[in-house]
Nucleic acid binder design. Structure first.
Lengths: 208, 208, 208, 208
DNA sequence: AATGAATGAGGGTTCATTCAT
DNA sequence: GATGAATGAACCCTCATTCAT
């Protein structure tokens, strides 16, 4: 039936339009923050009428959440296959940590403004989004904990409260990343920064 | 002159009133967040008329900043004398780190809702407050760096990029504190938590 | 020519479609009232697209008016042949009055929701429709007056301002009908109700 | 305390302002009907800002209802003492009926536009107001029924279903009044009209 | 002819700020 | 100084109408 084809094409067009509005929303949120963003700003940025915004999202809050969700998904996709190959010794462990962080840093580099905006604005939007940010972090903490548990079990990391240490590691990473992007980290290469941080995580500050 | 006395008394009364409004503002911001707080909410909470609010603060933003500033001041006051007695060996270093964190934790415990609200809302209010939060953190980072530099110079901490490591340490602390208060940290005593985190900072995850 | 046939068939289809939209409009107006009815509601009820609505009616108001007109026409059709056989004495007069009211009541019973909606909504839509409702009533008043004039001329009704009395009679009928349908009339049979009302119209409340 | 006086004065001023807005709302509703009336129209008519409207009424619906209620109260006030002195014979009964109708007509004459608007618009606003109009009518029906019951008991009105007949009488009156005001009644004096209608109610159309 | 996505003018409502008392 | 009623700019959202497909 030709109407099927048509329906499909229309559906695709609608989806494309929705993405365009979503992209526009993301850009405006980055530029102005959640509360200073008007629906009319998003519509103008997307080059559509205000009514069109409402065809795709019930309100500003929903558009923000959609931007957030898309970001989180794209970021986790980056790490999908990671837990597959677990390290076999301390050296491998350290290397794959560095590699993971480099990949993460690169993924974030591409969306750094978006990432910063989301982490800054989402918790202040409402309780639900605050919770979502927390869950997002928890995802990484769980990932870190899995690796840590493995390393501890295999004997190439010291026994410790892995949940707590995983939290500490992720918090550390998040903070340093934040500073790096806001230009308040020392002026070093990203590689140096990551290695320094990984060294700290592996050896602390102790003189061996 | 009696008018001097009177003027002073009036001034004191005004200052007391200002503090009352400030306290009220803090409570309402904690309860509702910055953007969901109306001037009328603050006035009602303070038991004064809306107009009175404007006698003490030019707008909502200024009241928020005043709440923020007062919090930061009260917190730094806690650590005023700390850099006075620097540790002389690794053990002393570790002990005074734990002690500092315990004091900090206690200071925050008293104002945890306020602290959480400020860290959550301030960055989303505007660029200036976002910067202030960063400076606030930088204060602690500097404190940490001072200690770290001392320890490195004295030879009881390994040489490292102390700025970076100080950032990592403060970020770690901030994150773990955040989780602890949001109930997402493992169910352990605060003492255990601090010791575990300090251990991590001192030894990392390496098997010595 | 076959194209004539085809044109006719197309025309019939269009007319059928128009009726379907009109029916749908009537149902939605009854359900939601004029102002709470959206074009999209009517289109959805008719199972057509919004654009199709505009192919048949220029706007919501026109659709409402069409519903109104169709109702009025169908109701007057019921009484088309009535003025043909005029009564010859008081008894015949009373009987045909009762009969007319019963037929009317039955006609309305079938469309009572529509009738109530139209009488309720139309006057508030605009001046023109308010006027149309008045004309509609005037039609019945004229009918009543014709009978009354006849009866007065023939001497089996007392002389009176027949226009005024006809108005009174129709108003009375309308009101009682309204109450009957809204369930605020006493719990009697329709037959009893009509007889009681006709008695009142014939004898008033006087003790003969 | 002087603050009491002040509070009272402020309260009085507020109440006066509320009445002014209410009056303005009434005038605009009469002029434009409920649905064509904007809040800004009412505010402009009252010579106040839009926000002021919302200080006194939660929304347009509430203002309309307040206009309605005030009208109903003022009308019933007119008839407050009426049921006090019941008639003792048919003549007295007829006289007091005429007198009541004249008073009613005069009361309505003063507010005829308001009355017409309310009866036309209210039922279309929503179910609740439709119901209120019905209750309003029921009030008069009850009044009529009380008199009718009395007259029937005393033997100077024929036995009948007094509820039904009271409904018929009020409906008749309402309709005739409506027509009179819309200029569709015969061109007679109000006195003649009332007498004609009362005659009809007392004697019907029968030739005694 | 039929569709329904797109449009944007329109209107209700909020709330920071002012100001007369 | 304190008050809170008044203000109206600002902004969200609706929905009748258009029009490309």
């Amino acid at each position: 039936m030709p109407s099927d084809l048509r329906q499909e094409r229309d559906h695709a067009r609608t989806e494309r339009r929705r993405q365009a509005v979503l992209d526009a929303a993301g850009r405006v949120f980055v530029r102005q923050g959640y509360h200073r963003t008007l629906i009319s700003d998003i519509a103008a940025e997307a080059g559509v009428g205000q009514g069109t915004f409402y065809r795709h999202f019930p309100d500003k809050r929903a558009a923000f959440e959609a931007v957030f969700d898309r970001f989180v998904e794209s970021l986790f996709a980056e790490f999908a296959g990671m837990s597959a190959n677990l390290p076999h010794d301390a050296r491998e462990y350290r290397d794959s940590s560095v590699e993971a962080l480099v990949r993460m840093a690169q993924a974030l580099e591409r969306n750094q403004d978006l990432a910063k905006m989301l982490m800054r604005e989402a918790p202040a939007v409402d309780r639900v989004l605050e919770e979502k940010v927390a869950s997002f972090q928890d995802g990484f903490i769980l990932l870190a904990k899995t690796f840590l548990d493995h390393a501890t079990a295999e004997g190439f990391a010291r026994p410790c409260d892995t949940t707590l240490v995983a939290q500490a590691i992720v918090g550390m990473g998040t903070s340093v990343a934040h500073m790096w992007w806001s230009g308040r980290a020392p002026d070093v290469t990203l590689d140096h920064l990551i290695n320094e941080v990984v060294d700290f995580a592996f050896f602390g500050i102790s003189t061996r």
